[in-house]
Design a protein around this nucleic acid. Structure first.
Lengths: 210, 210
DNA sequence: TAGATTGTTAATCGATTAACAATC
DNA sequence: TAGATTGTTAATCGATTAACAATC
């Protein structure tokens, strides 16, 4: 039964995560079945690509009958490593950090927000999403004791690298970087860049070529 | 002189925008020259790819001598359509919208934040980054009179589609979507999805395969 | 000059699209 | 059964990597 374990390509991983959002919508509306055609229409690609993506999962739909929305959602979650709760920590509770902490539905997608850190005295101790913002100096202890493996960096550029270093020293293996600099880290650390200004620039290019 | 005008590929456009951030750093540090090797080291890819990306620009470095940081930056800006100021409007001034409005350095990259909208009475009228938050009902008039072409949607999922429709009706051609739903819009509208939870999921996959 | 480094073509690799037999 | 739809292979397309002559 075990399909060959080779890595999924980044574009496929991205699309699978986006399919999941669509599936949740379907599930909420009590739709139990979705075809590759429907999913493609909702996503904006084509049925061939949807099937090819799903083909890489270990098991999927029933020949000729479409996919069970919740079975497919579950399978995507499992494949993305979201079956046992992944704990996330956010460093920097400015507007952006606050937005992540309050609006990202971690628990709907197999994750949990386990800690939030800042250095500003007027923010430390505040409650946010059932969590007390902790002093940055407690970071090392907390991420070790809570076994947090993913960190989101939402601090100003000048301190981002040092925050990164601290996270790495204490066992974080995945970093989501919202700061505006490239981070240096050992190769075994996965870094995902999420530079807002770059999205606007990409859009600018698209807009100017239509 | 005109190089063939064919579109740059999305991965190339993304990288170019990211190179620009690195170049700005170099320029700030008064470094005038950068080699493909250095840029690749800073970015985390290889010199071949850097040169291949730059090759698609109309003009670039000097054979054997590396690239002038500011000439290359300027050329990237030009290519991405950032030479004449692109006006951006943000809809939804919650934590996320506020973060975009206050922390994204639009003006450093050939853009300008020209308007911000919300529906909450306690937010409307507030000053944010030299801009008064306007009532959503003024959106149509404002984006037409100010000729805003790019809109960022930072509203809750339930109203995102209707905001999108309003933007499209009034001449917006590029949309940055931070809401958690897929938007339906005419084909000539460029939509860039920026779903935060999906970045976390991608990271989860990476982390679980190391 | 010699070493460094670009511009550019060619080769490789990987992702998307197309096609269709198998199945319900 | 016939129509719909999947699983899966093959063909196409595009992006990355390698290589090197040209140039400073």
């Amino acid at each position: 039964m075990a399909k060959d374990d080779s890595r999924l390509s980044p574009p496929t991983v991205l699309r699978l995560s986006e399919y999941l959002l669509i599936l949740e919508q379907y599930i909420k509306e009590n739709k139990e079945i979705i075809s590759s055609r429907e999913l493609a229409d909702a996503y904006g690609n084509n049925a061939n690509q949807v099937r090819q993506d799903i083909f890489h999962l270990e098991n999927s739909g029933r020949l000729g009958q479409g996919y069970s929305t919740w079975e497919l959602a579950e399978e995507i979650r499992r494949t993305l490593g979201l079956s046992d709760i992944r704990k996330v920590g956010i460093v920097g509770i400015g507007n952006l950090g606050k937005a992540l902490a309050t609006h990202v539905p971690f628990s709907d997608y197999g994750m949990s927000l386990a800690a939030a850190f800042d250095t500003a005295p007027d923010i430390i101790g505040k409650k946010i999403n059932n969590l007390h913002v902790q002093d940055f100096s407690e970071l090392a202890d907390t991420i070790k004791s809570k076994d947090i493996k993913i960190g989101a960096i939402c601090v100003p550029a000048v301190v981002a690298q040092s925050v990164c270093d601290t996270l790495v020293e204490n066992g974080i293996t995945g970093i989501l970087n919202y700061s505006r600099i490239r981070l240096k880290a050992p190769k075994h650390i996965s870094i995902q860049y999420q530079q807002v200004i770059c999205s606007f620039m990409q859009l600018s290019y698209k807009v100017s070529h239509d």
